[in-house]
Measured scan of single mutants.
Amino acid sequence: MSIQHFRVALIPFFAAFCLPVFAHPETLVKVKDAEDQLGARVGYIELDLNSGKILESFRPEERFPMMSTFKVLLCGAVLSRVDAGQEQLGRRIHYSQNDLVKYSPVTEKHLTDGMTVRELCSAAITMSDNTAANLLLTTIGGPKELTAFLHNMGDHVTRLDRWEPELNEAIPNDERDTTMPAAMATTLRKLLTGELLTLASRQQLIDWMEADKVAGPLLRSALPAGWFIADKSGAGERGSRGIIAALGPDGKPSRIVVIYTTGSQATMDERNRQIAEIGASLIKHW
């Protein structure tokens, strides 16, 4: 068994979910400061990975656009189908120029040979490839089937209604394609530690997140040497930005962190900087 497989195998399969305990108010002060700096709502939650206990939260039950963070949930649904014998990671999917949508850096290079389901999930999570996400959504039956998958695992909040790139529209008070920080954190924890997926599929999902190549300016920029992070970022219209992550010291994950913001006029660089500063405070007061 590899070190990575050993790491995931040791994560307990508890489903406990406790009331908020504000253990590190310094980080919450930074979250509130980020709201002021961005002129926007910021949602934040931090869960203990083992117990599910809420360590910190701010606007945990307010809706925020999911943006590309939904791609982790999508690949979780795909892996669930693989575990059930309904899908194969090695199955090759062919597509055409007409299937390509905005921001598809991986799929646009494989119009001739197509891509396997495994490769599409990797592209969707590590590079946030939008066409890969749409092709994967098609394999499970579309956005409503992803919502149904989430409902079946106990998440009655998170919903996907549209395809890429329309799902990033982020209209105020529009519940389409949204989640809440508390719901997303709990669902991510179930996918990474629960019995919904096999150990091999849980390991595959966290491996894809660990290999994320487009979230460098966010939490990763604040991470000390030797820390572990597996994450997925998202960006949308109307100043929307977000990240979901499993992270921790000593090379293994010990907490789930979810950060969303929407409604800002700030630049992407400024949104990234504020999320990175929240991450720096989190690590400082770990």
Rank of each mutant, 00 (worst) to 15 (best):
K213P: 04
I278F: 03
R91T: 09
M209I: 00
H156Q: 14
L167M: 11
K252A: 13
N168T: 06
R7H: 06
Y260V: 06
P181M: 01
P224E: 06
S221Y: 12
S201Y: 05
L199V: 09
N134S: 03
W227A: 01
M180K: 15
F64V: 04
R7D: 07
D161H: 03
G154W: 13
L19G: 15
N50R: 15
L135C: 04
Y103N: 04
L10A: 15
A200G: 13
Y44C: 01
I93L: 10
W163L: 11
W163S: 10
M115T: 03
R202V: 09
R241K: 06
S221N: 10
T126R: 06
V78I: 11
L73H: 06
Q97P: 15
L160T: 09
P181V: 08
A23V: 14
V82D: 04
G251W: 07
G279A: 11
V157G: 10
T126N: 07
D155N: 03
L188W: 03
P224V: 03
L282G: 02
L19P: 08
M184I: 09
M180S: 15
E56D: 10
T147I: 10
S68Q: 00
A211R: 13
I125D: 00
R63A: 05
L219M: 12
D83L: 01
H94S: 07
R255V: 05
T267S: 13
Y95F: 15
W208L: 04
E166W: 12
V82N: 05
N173A: 11
R238D: 07
V42L: 11
E270G: 09
T179I: 00
L218F: 03
E166M: 13
F58S: 08
L136R: 00
R91G: 04
L137P: 00
D231S: 04
D83N: 04
R176V: 06
Y103L: 04
R81G: 06
D250I: 13
V257E: 01
S68N: 00
T198E: 08
L120I: 05
T262A: 07
E175L: 14
G216R: 09
T186L: 12
A183C: 09
R92A: 08
L79C: 04
R162T: 08
I93E: 03
G239A: 04
A34V: 14
K252G: 10
R241N: 03
T69D: 01
F14G: 06
M66Q: 05
R255C: 02
L135S: 03
L188R: 00
T126I: 03
H24D: 10
M66W: 05
V106A: 10
S96G: 12
G85C: 07
N168Y: 02
P143R: 02
M184T: 01
E166D: 12
P12S: 14
A211V: 07
K144E: 13
P12L: 12
N152H: 15
G239C: 02
G142E: 04
D33A: 15
A200L: 08
E61D: 15
M66R: 00
R189Q: 14
E145A: 15
K109N: 09
A183T: 12
R241S: 07
I229R: 01
A222P: 13
E87P: 01
A182S: 15
D212V: 03
G154V: 02
W208G: 01
H5Q: 07
S221H: 09
T267L: 10
L38Q: 06
E145K: 15
K190N: 14
V214A: 08
Y103T: 04
A266T: 11
I229A: 04
T158P: 00
D174V: 03
K252M: 12
R238V: 12
R92V: 15
D36N: 07
I206G: 10
H285L: 10
I244A: 07
W163V: 12
N50G: 15
D174K: 02
M1I: 08
V82E: 05
N173T: 15
A222L: 08
N98S: 13
D48V: 03
Q88C: 11
P217R: 10
L150V: 07
Q86V: 11
E277A: 12
S80F: 12
L192R: 00
L218S: 02
P65S: 05
R41W: 06
L111P: 07
T193L: 15
R189V: 10
T138A: 15
F14V: 10
G154R: 05
P65W: 01
A133G: 09
P143Q: 05
R159L: 04
H24A: 15
I259R: 00
T131P: 02
A124D: 00
S57L: 10
I243A: 03
R238W: 14
P224K: 07
R63V: 08
I3G: 04
R241T: 05
K144Q: 12
F70V: 11
T27Q: 06
T112R: 15
E237G: 15
W286M: 07
G239T: 02
D99N: 08
G251S: 11
V21G: 08
T107A: 07
R63T: 11
G239W: 01
S221D: 09
K232R: 06
T187R: 01
G85F: 06
A124S: 08
D231H: 03
L89G: 05
A77V: 10
P172C: 10
A123G: 06
G43S: 06
R159F: 05
W227E: 00
I244R: 00
S254H: 09
M66I: 15
M268S: 09
L19V: 15
E277D: 04
N152C: 13
V82I: 09
E175Y: 13
A246P: 00
